[in-house]
Design a protein around this nucleic acid. Structure first.
Lengths: 153, 153
DNA sequence: TGCACCCTTTACGTTTACGTCAATTCTATA
DNA sequence: TATAGAATTGACGTAAACGTAAAGGGTGCA
């Protein structure tokens, strides 16, 4: 039922390929190269973020898939949801100027930046409160460990 | 089926009460006073974090419950899980020195502080990356909006 | 008495990004 | 040929902290 083995596919120029050296990768290699799990790659595909080509049932990731994965990972790093990432990616049009895509990305980025800054503020607040509490707890421990000289200089 | 009405319970000194002015609160008042929902209070109780007294089926929160709720909210603010909060609270013993409780709290606090600092670092990293990307996107938008004078001084 | 409120319990739903089997198939290699 | 190493799909599980009905009791007041 198989037309071309993975080895052949990697070695040959595929009929439908855009160019010659397509250096396709299978899922295991992708996972290793980008520090994600197989499950993650399949999940991203399921969510419409990736669309690897197939050799029978085996996924083959092209340069384009790799670029998309990089974008996904960047997006996640800066805190975008996968939905956001997909929404932005879906606007990509290799033939146009992508102005709409860029504007959307910028808009989402501004909002995300605001969220991040608010989060940072919250975390710093929490750090402050926690440090305070810790000081108080330490003080209580000291008092409990040395209750004999309570008014010593 | 009811022994004492809420009004009476709030106005009277209950037999089992520790002291006189117990000023009990019902769940709605608690929610309002501490900015949480009814669901949240019931949820905390379900998780063993609160133990309000009952008048029939109506919850009555004592001073002690209010103190515990404050602690819970502080804990959540600094990022502890409810499990952590419970674990620390469960060690509370009004008759002892609570050294174990304090040590546990301090230990958990140190770890939480470390987590918070790591999170802050991650967020700052994300802010940096996002700002970079935004600058790049803005640049692309400029180039696309004014492609006529590409080499102008 | 009829409405407006407050309270109760039970229990399923939500969110996000995967983890973790399970059952199978395919392939290369010793 | 036996075995180990990839790959596949499918589908339930997980975490946390509640949200959101649904269905009902009880109380005061105009």
């Amino acid at each position: 039922m198989k037309l071309v083995s993975p080895g052949e596919a990697a070695a040959n120029t595929n009929d439908m390929s855009v160019e010659a050296g397509e250096d396709l990768a299978r899922i295991g290699e992708m996972a290793k190269n980008y520090g994600v799990t197989l499950r993650t790659l399949r999940f991203y595909e399921d969510k419409g973020l990736l669309n690897p080509r197939r050799d029978g049932s085996t996924r083959l990731y092209t340069r384009r898939d790799k670029a998309r994965l990089k974008l996904i990972l960047l997006g996640r790093k800066v805190g975008f949801s996968l939905r956001d990432v997909k929404q932005m990616m879906d606007l990509y049009d290799p033939t146009g100027s992508n102005t709409k895509q860029l504007r959307l990305a910028l808009d989402k980025s501004e909002k995300q930046l605001a969220r991040l800054q608010k989060q940072r503020a919250l975390i710093e607040d929490a750090i402050g409160e926690l440090s305070n509490s810790m000081a108080a707890v330490r003080q209580m421990l000291i008092e409990r460990s040395a209750p004999q000289a309570s008014v010593a200089s």
